[in-house]
Design a protein around this nucleic acid. Structure first.
Length: 188
DNA sequence: CGAACGATTAGCT
DNA sequence: GCTAATCGTTCGA
């Protein structure tokens, strides 16, 4: 019986939780794999959706930690975040890439793609492969359909600038599993 | 009420 | 490397 991460495990700062989640297992209805890339976002961070305070879209970020914040990206993709820190703070960790491990055939069917390497290597791709939609916004991560298992003690993590943002580029809040071939992009 | 803009991706040059 | 696709959210008038 493997222990799942509980809400209190998500109570830390986003830039501390994001690297700690590298190597953790994320499953949605039993489908998913190992988290190999994350990014941290914070209320005091101009690049964060929560920077300007609560709005209808980002309300989940201001709710209790240990829940999902799901948003639509570019009108096309669904992206998954883990809400962290204490309730009302508006911090979260974006799940940018996972290494496919379970339900691979189903993920291939959802993505219309064979290549393992392209299956979940990007936040929009993760959303499509795991069938993430707005219905999961605000849902607890320690209950079905979610399952999040902790990362091993020794997990080599690398950091770098976040991707696709135009503000706060100096914050190196993108984290990856060192040497993984399932990253959305390599680290310099 | 209108307009600009994305925490992106796939496909083409 | 460059750009279209596509639409909800946010902000200014």
């Amino acid at each position: 019986m493997t222990k799942v991460l509980k809400p209190q495990d998500f109570a830390g700062d986003s830039h501390e939780l994001a690297p700690a989640l590298i190597g953790a297992i994320l499953l949605v209805n039993g489908v998913g794999g190992r988290i190999v890339e994350t990014e941290a976002y914070d209320r005091a961070d101009p690049a964060s959706h929560s920077f300007s305070g609560p709005t209808p879209r980002n309300q989940a970020m201001f709710g209790p930690p240990g829940r999902a914040y799901v948003y639509r990206s570019y009108g096309i993709h669904w992206c998954l975040n883990f809400v962290c820190r204490e309730e009302g703070h508006g911090a979260g960790v974006l799940i940018r890439a996972i290494e496919p491990l379970q339900g691979i055939d189903l993920m291939r069917a959802r993505r219309g793609l064979e290549d393992l390497r392209l299956l979940c290597s990007g936040p929009g791709r993760v959303g499509q492969a795991l069938a993430i939609t707005h219905e999961l916004n605000g849902c607890r991560l320690d209950r079905p359909p979610f399952q999040v298992l902790p990362a091993p003690e020794k997990t080599p993590v690398v950091a770098g600038p976040r991707i696709g943002i135009s503000k706060a580029m100096e914050l190196h809040w993108r984290f990856g599993l060192s040497g993984s071939r399932y990253l959305s992009r390599n680290f310099l």
